[in-house]
């Protein structure tokens, strides 16, 4: 009885979470621009999508910015997490407090502050401003996912490597890095995800020729969203879904191998 109630609850929640997504996907195949009435199946929107230079360009911007932000924030964040790990309590607190700011202020405020900063530096809005802003809100996640790995690290392995004649940089690359790799990978994936998903900060920092997908979607919501956008989102969603399933299957296979 309790089990049934629990499953009902889960079903309702997941229905709530997935109903809009199902609506979006189904209406990407609708043979009309209507978003409430079904007129029949078509793939036209998918064909048109690949001829729409505005959408393709924005998809390109989104991916370039997300990749750049993920790479820079992973490098900078991992190195920073190592440095913070070696710090005394006082400076550690200062760093972690500053690191928490992007996560605990809203993205509306972050977007506004970046806009003022770039105006003050007279940086024109474009790729550079987008990447700088995205990197800034991606780093805290990287730091926070690498730090627990460093804390679990056994100090004596590093010292053993040094005793056995490794230079500090060798010991870092061959002993510490492999140990903390899972944290780095999680951080990088997280950075990539939140960069792709971001709308608010991009809205305040994107130039008119470098609008990421989310900003283009926003400008469309004022009129009417073209089903082409449903199509591009459906494609992205399915690609991610396949990727996640592959990763999941691989990790559960690895887990089986280990045991």
């Amino acid at each position: 009885m309790k089990k049934i109630l629990q499953n009902c609850y889960l079903a309702i929640i997941f229905l709530f979470l997935y109903a809009p997504i199902a609506v979006l996907m189904i209406f990407s195949f609708n043979d009309n621009k209507s978003r409430v009435r079904w007129y029949g199946f078509t793939l036209d929107w998918y064909v048109e999508l690949f001829q729409d230079s505005q959408i393709l360009n924005s998809l390109y911007v989104t991916l370039v910015v997300a990749l750049a932000a993920a790479v820079i924030s992973t490098l900078l964040g991992t190195v920073a997490a190592m440095g913070i790990h070696c710090m005394k309590r006082r400076s550690k607190t200062v760093y972690l407090t500053l690191n928490n700011i992007p996560m605990s202020t809203s993205d509306t405020i972050m977007g506004v502050t970046f806009m003022l900063l770039f105006a003050a530096l007279s940086l024109p809005k474009g790729y550079l401003t987008l990447i700088l802003a995205h990197t800034t809100f991606c780093i805290p996640g990287v730091v926070l996912s690498v730090r627990p790995m460093l804390r679990q690290l056994d100090k004596s392995t590093y010292e053993a490597a040094l005793d056995l004649g490794a230079t500090p940089s060798q010991a870092l690359r061959q002993v510490i890095l492999p140990e903390i790799m899972p944290g780095i990978v999680t951080g990088a994936i997280m950075a990539f995800t939140i960069s792709i998903d971001d709308f608010v900060v991009s809205y305040f920092t994107a130039g008119s020729n470098t609008q990421p997908l989310s900003v283009v979607i926003y400008s469309m919501t004022r009129r009417r969203i073209s089903p082409k956008i449903n199509a591009v989102s459906t494609l992205m969603f399915l690609i991610i879904l396949v990727l996640l399933i592959v990763i999941n299957m691989r990790s559960s296979r690895d887990a089986k191998k280990k045991s």
């Binding site: 979470l17 997935y18 109903a19 809009p20 997504i21 609506v23 979006l24 209406f27 978003r35 409430v36 995800t193 792709i196 998903d197 709308f199 997908l213 989310s214 979607i217 926003y218 919501t221 969203i225 956008i229 449903n230 989102s233 992205m236 969603f237 991610i240 879904l241 996640l244």
Partner: peptide, 18 residues
């Protein structure tokens, strides 16, 4: 986590249809 991969503006927009 998966819904977060669908752009949040679009998900909100879909609620309008509902």
């Amino acid at each position: 986590m998966l819904p977060m991969w669908m752009n949040f503006l679009l998900r909100t927009y879909a609620w309008m249809s509902i």
